[in-house]
Every structure is written in structure tokens, then in C-alpha cells.
Write a protein that binds this DNA or RNA. Structure first.
Lengths: 340, 340
DNA sequence: CAACGATTGACAACCGATTGCCATTTCTTG
DNA sequence: CAAGAAATGGCAATCGGTTGTCAATCGTTG
């Protein structure tokens, strides 16, 4: 009579303990548990009973060592602080767990050195890597992807699988939205200079602006944090624009706070558009008009792509790229351009 | 001439490759790298050079297998969705990385079964566990802690090390704050029935209320999500109270939204107090008066305690408990009681 | 110069699994 | 009933390290 799960006197049971108890060799236990058809029905039953009785759980390290698969995936984020990544983490976690994988979460602190050394460490430990907002060069990314299954989120490099949130399209919608409200002086509050997304959005935005015959200036760069919002807000006011499109919601929310402090009313005097639709964008004051991106889904898709790469054995897996659509969510931080 | 980090032709180098290149035995390489004094100065230099040249990184699995230490710590959270945990995760991540540990993040989805089975899996894989808002029974926790270094956050069980955020004390400050504003009918919007924190705060609150001669009723339980705020707000209005103390900020923020929809002004008609001071509490509308807890610090302290347990070898480590002070942050969601 | 102790490095067992290969058993079929 | 094929289970090598044990080497001293 053994106690229910939770018992376990000394050291955890090994495959040898199970083998001894069921009167077979360790190798047979291994087969019974992984390759059931390879072993006799009755023997298997005996082994399973013994395993259950001993509360046997295979040692992941040993398994990884001999099989070469660690069943772990590393997820690198540039800043755990950023709510944007929370949704990604949530998505990857969900999907990884469903597939029986463990998630190794690492914060690279926006440093390419930390990022590089972490990847170096993980090379043996993880079966694959998901990179978000990588600060690495295209070449580095290619090299990494060449030797370890890799999926990048919001970063497009030839030869590297990626999941892209198509924010530029919705940003252009935001532009049209603002134009339709009578704005003709608009500013883009850019993110970090090394940010692929920021560059991509600015390119799309300036092209669209020219096409539509309105003036859009670029301000920044600003760190993607709420505290950068103050500087961004001041720059925006100083630029003479009547509307600002921020790199992300964090900056936008920071701007909202700063503008209020300065007595600039939103949206009466100034319209603000954010990006990502993070937690808080709907209840800040005023609720933020923003580009809603399926961030959690991006995490899930990235995992799906990564796992298919991992399990695709050899061959040249089609270098895939998945583009996720976004849309403009209009709330209360945008309004008609002020009369001059 | 080897390329800089990032090169790596075929399989990653092993300790044997390093040994071969430097002309010594693998065991010597192992010693040179871990127990430097055990090996000759010149030999060590040769080995280190070889290791650098081959871009050698020790295999974590193999290390774990032979040394019995995985240098990994599992952090279980009941719901990754909850911003409260983000700060914990941030804290643990920071501290773990500083100590050279890897963080295994797991979402238990508020299910004790998932929690139990996860811990079972992790028994061999992780050197220790940090449990947040555990749904397990005291007995289960004791058993777990008995066989694997464990630290619980916001859960006090004899024999299990823990980090407690002392929210009851600040909640009582909130009570005094409300009383001083003229409120005499106050409600506590409780969290999940199984929540240790919720119970603890209610006990403290009701005792304090009695002492001060005011009436505090308990409503709920409510799930710790913003969407529960609607029901909580309605219950609060119906109760006839003029002020509500919510289990956490998520509920409080949800209440704010609902009250606005219903045309109940905050704080003119109703005062609201939250708990935790999560991301968003300062920029919701109106900014939330709440109990500010050093959540990230709790994560850091938990890691520190856990690592000292892990490294304390045998002996009976003093069953420790760390209580972190909190304070009331007064913003704009509380005000004088409405005149009747 | 011989003997001694201290230092250094190699050998081999081990951690807990997986898996190729082979021997044995069992069942089927001529 | 015998022979061959299929099913089954065991042995042993292997994954990449760690570590106890012991032999060889070094320098030192009497």
C-alpha cells in the first residue's frame, strides 16, 4: 500500500528501481514507456504498475542527455518590464505547455551582449529559441538560426523564420483616421533607433503621408517606457503638430500623463494614437486610440512554427514568415483637429 | 584563426574536444574549469585557451546529471495574465540570473491539479521551487517543502519558508483613511475563497473595524480579474456602502469602469481602494488609492531565501519567514463620504 | 645522491536515461 | 513435429560531464 502522489521517502525513483520492481531490465522499462508496441502487453502492464507505485517520473536531464532533445524552448525578451511582452510570454507559455515543452524565460535587458551570451549558453540547453525584438544584426541572427531552430517575433531577416505583427497597415489607418478628423500636422514619436518595428512603421507612415499630401514629422528616438512619454509629449507640443502617433502604448500613456500636467487637453487640443493595445490602454485617461495587435497570438504562432521546425528533422524547411493582421481601435484619445 | 563568437561549424564542442586540443584528459579539463587550484598554472592556461578557441560551453544537462544540481528554479504562478505576477516574475528573474540560475516559468492556471503534477515533474528538474498564491493544502505544501527547497509567496504554512506581503496592516490604514473621510459604511470585496491573502486581509479588517466601531461587510468572492469588477461594483452599490476596499487592483479597476458606466462618480459618490499598486493603478481614471506592495522585491527576497536553502547543504535551516511592509498610497479614488 | 612528501594528471566509475544489436522465446506454417 | 519468422527482452555502449582513487612526476632535504 503506497500513499497517494506526494509520498516519496528518499530519492526519487529511477528507471532501475522500476525495472527491479517489475523484474525486467532497465532498457525494457524505457521501451515500455516510450515505444509501447515494442514490448509485450502483460509486461508493459506490470511495468506501468510498478512505475505508478514508485511514483516514477523520468529524469528530464538524463533524457535530454541521451536523446539530445531537452524539450525546452528559450524565450528571450528585451525587457520583462514591458507589458507588451507579457502577452507574448502568455502566448508562448500556453502553447509550449500544451506541447509538453518547458519555457525558459530570459530577459536580455535590451543588451545585445547579454543576448549573444545567453544564446551561447542556451545552445545546448534548449531545442529552440524565440527571439522578440532582437537587438542583434541580421548576420548574427542568420548564424544563430542556422544552427538552432529559431523564430523571431517582429523582426524580418532572410533565412530566419519570423512572426510579424503588421502594425504599419493599421498605423496607416490611424493616419487616415487623423486626416479625416482634420489633422494636417502629425508627428511620429519613434522608438529605439535599433528597433526594426519602429523603422518599419516610420517607412510605411512617411510613404503614406506623402501619398496623402500631409506632413508627418518624426521625433525621437524615445525609450519604450512610460517615463519617456514626458519627453515625447514635450517634443510633440513643441513640434506644432496637433496629433501624435506613438511607437507604443507605453510611450502614449506616458504622454497622456504629461500632457495633462501641462494642461494640454486630449483630445481637444491634441490627439494621441498608441500601438499594441496593451493592458491599460482601455482604462487610461482618456482611453487610448491605438493599434490593436494580436500579441498573444503572435506568441502562440511563434511556438507553433518553432515546434514544426524542431520536429521537421532535416530537409530545408520552407523559410516561413507569418504576418498577423492588426486593426485600429478608436477610443477617446483622438478627436477633431483644434480650430486655429 | 577562429572566427569570433558565433562561429561553430558542426556540433558544439565537448569537454573531450577541449581535452584533446590541449593534450590532457577530460577530467583535468573539468577540474581546471571548476577547481582551478587543483591544476597547474600553465596547464590551466592551455586548457582555457583551448576552451576559448573551441568556443566551449559546458552542457547544462550533463552537468546537472552528474552533479545533481540543475541550476534551475521553477517559479509557479497561478495566472500569468495577472499583472501582479509580472512584478514577481521580474524580481525572481533578476535575482536568479544574477546568481547564475535559470528560471522555469510555469502557469498553473489556478488549478491545484496542474500545480501538483507540475511539481511532480519538476522534482528532478529544478533545484527549488517558488510558489505564488498556491492553491495547495497546508499538508501538501509541507510535503513538498520537505523534499525540495521551497519558498511560498503570500502563503504561510508552518515548516515552509515564505515571503509575506503585509497588506493587512496597510489595509487597516486604508480603513482609517476612509473613516477619517467620514465613511461609516464600508465593504470589502473579497478575492477567491481559497485565497490565503484574501482571508488574512478580511480577518484583519473585520477585527480593526470592530475595534473602531464601524461597519464593514464582506462581499464576494470575486475572481481577481478586471471583468469581475462589474459584479463587484454592482454588489458594492447594492450594499449601501459608500466605500469599497477591493481584494486587488484588477478588481478595483474593473469597478471603476463599471461605476462610471452606471453614472456613479468616484470619489464623490463612492470611494474605492485597491491593493498591490500594479501597473496601471496610477493612470487609470481616477488614479487609484491603493495598498502599495513591494512585489518585485518579494520575488527577489524569495529567490534569496531559496538559494540560501539550496546551498545550506544539510542541517535544519531555520524555518524562515520574511514579512515585507506595505503602505497606503492615496490617489484620487477616495474622497469624503457623500452627504446624506 | 637517495629518499621523501607534495603536487599534478589520468583512469574509471557513475549520474539516468536511450538504443543498436543479439539471444531467447513464442507462434506460425510446411 | 521441425524449421523459420516474428516477437520480446537483455546487454552494453553512449550522451557530457564530475569526482574518488591512484600513479607518476616534481622539487626538496638529509
Amino acid at each position: 500500500m503506497t500513499a497517494p502522489p506526494g509520498f516519496t521517502p528518499g530519492k526519487p525513483a529511477t528507471i532501475h528501481d522500476v525495472a527491479a520492481l517489475s523484474g525486467v531490465a532497465a532498457s525494457t522499462v524505457s521501451r515500455a514507456l516510450s515505444n509501447p508496441d515494442r514490448v509485450n502487453f502483460r509486461t508493459r502492464a506490470r511495468i506501468e504498475a510498478a512505475a505508478a507505485q514508485l511514483n516514477y517520473v523520468p529524469n528530464a536531464q538524463a533524457k535530454a542527455l541521451s536523446s539530445g532533445q531537452s524539450k525546452a524552448v528559450a524565450v528571450l525578451v528585451s525587457d520583462i518590464t514591458n507589458p507588451f511582452f507579457f502577452d507574448i510570454i502568455r502566448g508562448t507559455q500556453l502553447q509550449l505547455k500544451a506541447a509538453g515543452y518547458t519555457q525558459l524565460l530570459v530577459d536580455t535587458e535590451e543588451s545585445d551582449e547579454v543576448e549573444t551570451s545567453t544564446i551561447e549558453q542556451l545552445r545546448n540547453t534548449a531545442d529552440g529559441i524565440i527571439l522578440t525584438a532582437s537587438r542583434l544584426s541580421d548576420e548574427s541572427l542568420e548564424q544563430i538560426a542556422a544552427r538552432l531552430p529559431t523564430v523571431a517575433i517582429n523582426r524580418s531577416v532572410p533565412g530566419v523564420a519570423s512572426v510579424i505583427l503588421d502594425t504599419p497597415t493599421a498605423t496607416n489607418q490611424a493616419l487616415d483616421h487623423l486626416i479625416s478628423l482634420g489633422h494636417s500636422h502629425i508627428a511620429f514619436l519613434g522608438g529605439p533607433a535599433t528597433s526594426f518595428s519602429s523603422t518599419r512603421r516610420w517607412d510605411a507612415l512617411s510613404a503614406a503621408a506623402e501619398e496623402r499630401g500631409v506632413e508627418v514629422v518624426r521625433l525621437g528616438p524615445f525609450a519604450p517606457r512610460t517615463y519617456s512619454g514626458a519627453a515625447a509629449a514635450d517634443a510633440l507640443v513643441h513640434s506644432g503638430a496637433t496629433a501624435g502617433i506613438a511607437f507604443n502604448d507605453l510611450i502614449a500613456i506616458g504622454m497622456l500623463q504629461r500632457l495633462r500636467e501641462r494642461g494640454v487637453r486630449v483630445p481637444e487640443d491634441m490627439s494621441i494614437v498608441g500601438c499594441d493595445d496593451i493592458f491599460g490602454a482601455d482604462f487610461c485617461s482618456p482611453p487610448l486610440t491605438t493599434v490593436t495587435a494580436p500579441v498573444e497570438q503572435a506568441g502562440r504562432v511563434a511556438v507553433t512554427m518553432l515546434l514544426s521546425k524542431i520536429n521537421s528533422a532535416v530537409g530545408a524547411p520552407p523559410r516561413s514568415q507569418s504576418i498577423l493582421p492588426t486593426h485600429l481601435t478608436i477610443r477617446s484619445s483622438t478627436g477633431p483637429a483644434p480650430h486655429k
